[in-house]
Every structure is written in C-alpha cells, then in structure tokens.
Design a protein around this nucleic acid. Structure first.
Length: 114
RNA sequence: GGAGUAGACCAGACGAUCGCUGGCUUUGUCGUUGACAAGGCUGGAGGAAAGUCCGAACACCACAGGGCAGGGUGCUCCAUAACGUGGAGUCACGGUGACGUGAAGGCAAGUGCAACAGAAAGCAAACCGCCUCGCCUUGGGCGGGGUAAGGGUGAAACGGUGCGGUAAGAGCGCACCAGUUCUCCGGGUGACCGGGGAAGCUGGGUAAACCCCACCCGGUGCAAGACCAAAUAGGGGAGUGCUUGAGGGCGGCCCGUCCGAGCUCCCGGGUAGGUCGCUAGAGGUGUCGGGUAACCGGCAUCCCAGAGGAAUGAUCGUCGCCCCCGGUGCCGGGUAACCGUCCGGGGGAACAGAAUUCGGCUUACGGGCUGCUCCGACC
RNA sequence: GGGCCGUUAACUCAGUCGGUAGAGUAUCUGCCUUUUAAGCAGAGAGUCGUUGGUUCGAGUCCAACACGGCCCA
C-alpha cells in the first residue's frame, strides 16, 4: 500500500463518531491544539479535524485543515495503529506559524507511536 | 507634472515531486445489473463564490370567482422570464469642470403634528409700534377704532422690489419679477420644454405622519421534495396453539425431563443510513444583422466544479511585481538635498472558498490600462 | 444552505403618537453606628452598535453595514 495516501476510510465522517470520541477518548492539551484519541475496532486509524468559526473565516479554516491533513498523510502512524483521532484547533493558532503546529503534532506522534 | 472623474480589464506565470476529488476507459477478482483493486486519459472556485437586500426558475402545500385586510413599488419611455434591476431621457440639487446624486405621485380629498421662544404656528389674530377719535390734561395717561410698513421671536410669520396712494397703512392701484389655476399655438411616443393670453392676489412645512391614487404580490423553501430501507419498539391481517401442549433449553437425532403462552408468515407507516433532485443553462465564445443604448435575433462552435466533518493543497526551483537597507562604475533630471537607472541582501503579495441554479443590488479589496476635465510649467 | 430576532450608563432593562434620555444594581462622598452590613441623603458615569438620509429637530422614521444570539435535518 502506498504510504502517502489519505482516503475517505481514514477520516472521521459522522457526527455521532465525533460525539462518542469526545465522550470516551483521552485528551491531550497543547498550546495551539487539543487532541482526543481512542482505540477503535478497525484495521486502520481515522482522523477528524475540528476548527471553530472563532478561528477565522472559511479560507483560514480550510488552510489549517489542509496543513494538518498533509502532516498525517506524510507520517506513517495511521497505518501502524488503529486509533480514532480528533484534532481541535484553538483560537490562539492565529498568532503562530506552521512550524509551531508541526512541532506539537510531532510531540503527539512520539507519545502515541510505539 | 499634480489633482480629479468615467469606463473596460487582470486576479502572479512556468516546471518537477507527493497527494485530494468528479467523469470516461483498460485489465484483474467476485460475478445478473454492479462492487472492489491497479493503471491510463481528462475536468476541478470568484469578481465578488460573501452579505442574504430584491427578483425568478424548480418543488411541495393551499386555491371556483371576486373583495377586504396586510406588504411592496412610485417622474417618463423602453428592455427583460421577472425585479426595488438596467438603458435612454425630463426635472431638481451639488461641483469651476469632466461628472455625480435623487423613495422625484398627491398636503388648493380629509385628519393630525410643530418642543422652546414668540402677540400669534394655520386662519385668522395684534406685544412694542404707527395713525385717529373721546375723556382727564403741564409732560403724559386711560379707553374705543383703524393698520400690518417697521421692531422683536423662531427652523418656519401669509409673495418680493420700486412708484403711486393714504390720517397711518395695506395687491388698495400700477410696472417688473416669482408662483398658482385655466386656456391657445409649436416641438416631443411621453415626462416635459419654448412662446402668447386671462384670472386672482397667492390657498406655508411635514405623506422615510395616518392616509388618498395608480400598479404589483397565495405560503414555504433543495434542511423543498421523490425513492430504497436496517436495528428496536409498537399497529393491522391470516394461520396455528393454550394442559388433548405451539415454541424453546438439556452440543446432532429419538425417548425422557424442565420452562411454558405465545409462535410463524404477510402488509402498511417510518428512524439511522443510502440513492435521486445535482448540474446543458433565460449557458459561454466568435461573427453578422436590428436598436442611441440596455437588449434582441440568425449562424457557427464549445461542454466548462459537483463536494457532503465538505475536494483545488504541500515542498522545491526559475522568472516577474511591490517595499526596506547597503553600495555607487556609466547615464538622465535638479543650485542642492535627492530621485530614476545598475548591483547585492532581506521581507511581502490584497479581499476572500462553490453547497439547487440563474438575473441584479450592496459591501470588502490588490494592480496596472484608456478616455475626459481642471490647475501649473515650457515651446 | 435557509429563516428569524436583538444592540440604550460598568451590569440588567424602560423609553407611548419624533421635541432637554430614565429606573434598579454596582461605584464614590457624607450622615448614622465602637466598626462592618443594612438604612438615609447626594454625586459621577451615555458618540443611544456604525455610517448616511428624511425633518426645523431623530434613541424613535428610512436605507446600507457591523457585531451578538435563536430556529429548521
């Protein structure tokens, strides 16, 4: 399987999936993001991204989502594990750049991977 | 060169690598349509996609026809599927001008409103005045009448100026000007414009006050709506069964034993979920013709996003644009400071993301281009 | 995506038919009390969300915009 692919099966897509995850999942707080994660019964991991309207307009929100998806696409962690993950972006992200966001995602990757 | 004004235009470009998503197609597996996997070709945000301020298409609901209520629009003619939109004009206002702005019907249909000030705020009236008559009478005061020129108040005070006239005055009369109504002539499809005559002195403001007049409008919105349809609960029908035992448990079968009033099938509604609606259209581009124009018609040609926690991205390289800093060989402008030019380094690149689809409006915002106007300098 | 509502003092709200913007809480000052609280008296605090328009005059009427909130599967 191509390691740099992020398809529909690898995303959280339904409202009840997000709700049950936030009810039973573990939460990690970082400066710019909050990560909720939980083991699932599938063979692959699934990712969801939540960006509130308070963060910015549609262009800004889409840009943040694309950057986060790009990070998970390039990292292999989704194929070695079976987690449901939700990334919630906090308002403060307006004041930081992309490299800070990447550092926090890498911290989470080290924590969960292996 | 500066300031301004109107119009049309672009929305960084190219390449490489890794990805997302729609369509078509080839091969393989399961195999009835079809589903999955791999590969190939190809399409993939905007001028505002935004705000949701209007108008439609489309869908469902309601509806014989008409009226009332309610809402909207409001100079004229034209355009259009329709509009509160657009085009061309009229009038008014602003600007030296190019040009811009205008909810621009009716307060001589009715009703209402106008704080404070002022005598008086709507159709007549009179505070200080002015004039006159009577009484008291030194000055002057009191009372009756006339008057609206002057003063004062106010956002606004009942046509303006001049002459005549008068006791003082007044459209009381006259001349000119402004306005109203009626009428005639000419131009224009029309709003209206130009010119002549008569009347009467003139009946103020506010309709984004109620209202009157003319015209238009049924409601809800793709989360409209149509179809397929789990699980669970419950509804209807048929069959069978209730101690003569349906059905279930004791690993399969029979016997036995235990529990025991339901069990089986069909139908309809309908939730999660899925499919359709979903993109070929009042479509784009070019050209010819009609029209001042908006726009309309003919012909040719093209197919140009369809997602659904929501697709257009990331990284790198080259070039182009803007800003800042440093240097200054040549050249140009300037008395000079400096600016342009050239080289090197650093930074930045606006507003903003389709969500059923169109026609507009409004708001946000980067850039250069063209026409025109005014001002300044030179020839 | 579509529909609906609101914005007035630091906070919560009134404001009729356009004519000098009010109330309660809070704050401050004084009185009372040994002191605090309570009570009494007084004071300060307003671009009425923003910008235009109508009007002599706008919190109120009209238009555009901004911000906040609610509903519809």
């Amino acid at each position: 399987m191509n390691p740099q692919v992020l398809k529909k099966e690898d995303k959280l897509r339904k409202r009840y999936e997000f709700i049950t995850l936030s009810e039973f999942g573990e939460k990690k707080f970082y400066k710019n993001i909050i990560i909720i994660y939980r083991k699932n019964d599938l063979s692959n991991s699934r990712i969801g991204i939540t960006v509130s309207k308070k963060v910015g307009n549609a262009v800004v929100r889409n840009k943040i989502k694309r950057i986060i998806r790009e990070f998970f696409r390039k990292s292999r962690m989704l194929y070695n594990n079976n987690y449901d993950i939700n990334i919630i972006v906090r308002k403060k992200i307006k004041n930081c750049d992309h490299s800070d966001l990447k550092k926090e995602l890498e911290l989470f990757q080290i924590k969960i991977g292996k």
